[in-house]
């Protein structure tokens, strides 16, 4: 099984950025397909294939549907009409455009989600803290990621408590509004109260620090990974410029 435990969190992110920008610039369906299949193979090796497939399809299916409607059914471009009904025209050019856009989007979604699944969030927070980014960024990312499950659990508990005390919401828009009020008011009230209580403690501890503080968690890194990151970031910028600036580099079979 592929292990991402020894990877610096920025390494897969930088490689993904280079892959996404260069693949988008190439705009070739078989390159996009190869990248998606490569990501799925990596996910299988890391044991996250099912999660990646489900999460990707949840995002891609409605987006592909939207692109098919906009370009495949209602597009105005194209001369090769396959079917027509009133203002709707299905053309081969429109379907090609929808397929090209779908492939472009698939690379972004699959590569991005694979990174999110491979990267350890604690390592990511530690890496952000160690980077030149303002110290507030690390705190905010860490606090948000830890608060998400807490608030979701609190929301469920509030819902159960409201049910136990016999609060009924009814149906239709007024029922929706009542449900939202019954959940949101206690949730927001308790959350803002917690935040306001935490602020003086944070200030008293001297946050944000004016100088670098020692990190207790060490993020896995190596000279080779640093080189890969530098190369990937350069490729993320230079790759698309080279591909779009020198059309000879564009492979045949573009969407």
């Amino acid at each position: 099984m592929l292990s991402a435990a020894r990877l610096h969190p920025f390494t897969p992110l930088a490689v993904a950025a280079a892959v996404v920008t260069t693949t988008t610039a190439l705009g070739t369906w078989w390159v996009s397909l190869a990248v998606v299949l490569g990501c799925l193979a990596l996910a299988a090796a890391a044991g996250v294939l099912a999660r990646l497939a489900v999460a990707s399809l949840a995002i891609l299916a409605p987006a592909w549907g939207s692109q098919l409607i906009i370009h495949g059914l209602a597009g105005r471009a194209g001369e090769h009409v396959i079917a027509a009904a009133g203002p709707l025209r299905v053309t081969s050019e429109g379907l090609e455009t929808a397929a090209g856009l779908g492939a472009r989007l698939a690379v972004l979604v699959v590569a991005g989600l694979l990174c999110a699944l491979l990267v350890d969030t604690h390592d990511l927070v530690a890496a952000v803290d160690s980077s030149p980014a303002p110290p507030q960024v690390g705190y905010l990312v860490a606090a948000t990621l830890s608060l998400l499950p807490q608030l979701a659990a609190r929301q469920r508990a509030i819902g159960e408590a409201q049910t136990l005390r016999g609060a009924r919401a009814g149906r239709g828009p007024s029922g929706w509004w009542t449900r939202l009020r019954l959940r949101a008011v206690p949730l927001v009230l308790s959350s803002v109260h917690d935040a306001a209580d935490r602020a003086p403690h944070l200030a008293a501890r001297g946050f944000p620090p004016r100088s670098r503080v020692t990190r207790l968690r060490r993020v896995p890194d190596s000279t080779a990974q640093r080189r890969v990151r530098r190369l990937a970031l350069a490729a993320a910028v230079v790759g698309p410029v080279a591909v779009l600036g020198v059309p000879v580099l564009l492979p045949a079979g573009g969407a």
Binding site: Q136, L140, L151
Partner: peptide
């Protein structure tokens, strides 16, 4: 504001 922002981000997602 810094302590309120993570709460807000989580509320965006949860609500």
């Amino acid at each position: 504001a810094l302590t309120l922002i993570p709460i807000a981000l989580a509320l965006n997602i949860v609500l």
